[in-house]
Write a protein that binds this DNA or RNA. Sequence first.
DNA 1: GTGGTCTAGACCACG
DNA 2: GTGGTCTAGACCACG
Lengths: 131, 131, 131, 131
Amino acid sequence: MVILNLHDKRPIYVQLVDGIKEQVIKGILKPGDQILSIRQLAGQLSITPNTVSRAYQELERQKVIISVKGKGNYINDVPNFKRSEEKMEELKKLLTQLCIEWNFAGYNRGELIEVIDEIYNNLKKEESTCQ
Amino acid sequence: MVILNLHDKRPIYVQLVDGIKEQVIKGILKPGDQILSIRQLAGQLSITPNTVSRAYQELERQKVIISVKGKGNYINDVPNFKRSEEKMEELKKLLTQLCIEWNFAGYNRGELIEVIDEIYNNLKKEESTCQ
Amino acid sequence: MVILNLHDKRPIYVQLVDGIKEQVIKGILKPGDQILSIRQLAGQLSITPNTVSRAYQELERQKVIISVKGKGNYINDVPNFKRSEEKMEELKKLLTQLCIEWNFAGYNRGELIEVIDEIYNNLKKEESTCQ
Amino acid sequence: MVILNLHDKRPIYVQLVDGIKEQVIKGILKPGDQILSIRQLAGQLSITPNTVSRAYQELERQKVIISVKGKGNYINDVPNFKRSEEKMEELKKLLTQLCIEWNFAGYNRGELIEVIDEIYNNLKKEESTCQ
DNA sequence: GTGGTCTAGACCACG
DNA sequence: GTGGTCTAGACCACG
């Protein structure tokens, strides 16, 4: 389900982390769901298990999944929405950089909001198809 | 004027590129302005001229500045606000990733718009102080 | 395969860029082919890896190759034949300069076409030897 | 009459050399014509006389003009159309590079010929307006 | 003075 | 192994 893209400049393990987080937000993966084992996913994507392992470790660090030794990896059922000033500052910096690029690309604030709405709709679209 | 941040994961030359683009948007640097020479800026920041050179070459490629050999570097008078499908796709991907992070950090769409407004105000703040 | 020419006024990294693009057009390098690693090519040509790296980065910017960190560089499978007014204007200027030189060298339009045909034949020669 | 362009990557003295050669080909400057003195041209273009001097030296080397000490600089009346193998090889290399770029820009041989015809018409247009 | 290129190293992240 | 960044120098062309 996660699609790797060679043209994407993000490292493969980051693409995996982001891809799984996207599926969680879209509701494709739900709390308690077991995800593919490291070897299964590595085989499916034709990459080394090392890379998948790294992604899963990062996902566990971010409390997106929990690893149960000898059993598998599961989507965390604890809502991990802990707001932190630190994280907000980090996101604000990223957003500022994006706004600067947005300007230099010739787009304005209104168009930014439009695209954000489009993205938010997209992120929730899958959930409704399951209903 | 540009401040380097050692904790920032972006390479130094990217921080320079972003920093100068930010000053252009804020109106601190205006079309036609000559910016610091490679050696001057390198000295000021205690980095190798090579790194500044790389930043300036990237800025020229993006048409933010023009480099005149033997003379110096100048903020481009031709605004490079040409919209391109390609750039929009790139920005949309970045924005999607950011929205996902935003969600996992526990914030919603409304709060995103608020922060964007704050950023837009900030980017125009300097200009108004000159009036 | 790429041959550097010390008498050539073009910088080494530009000679590399042009040389590889020539091989792509001749069909010697095909989409998907992995090219020599930075270190391999640098060793072969007895130049610093930095210079090869710069050439490869320029080739990636031009979408001739794609660079995959930790893996290598590959000839891009997506042909980058997007016409742009801007590029055409640039080429027209170069061509005008060349025509002026051509005149001062004592040659006429007919001879120019002849040489162009010769060049076009040359650029496709390799491909036909493979058939 | 010669127009300098900061966005042009050629050094100023080369732009001068090329500009004057273009005027000779167009018939704007004719054999025997006296051209502006170094100081006149430098003043007109707001550049240092040093740079103009360098351009004139290069033009004399190429036998486009002749300098008469104490009198001035004149367009050479000796047709300087000496074909040389060496010059042809140099032009062929330039032309090959241009053809490669032409291809990567998405244009073909036919379009190249069209643009060449357009350029040749342009270079002779001025002459006919004088008739 | 200016920017452009290159060397010969180093260290890092990724796979 | 791979590419990416950076240092601390050097030399060059241009103005």
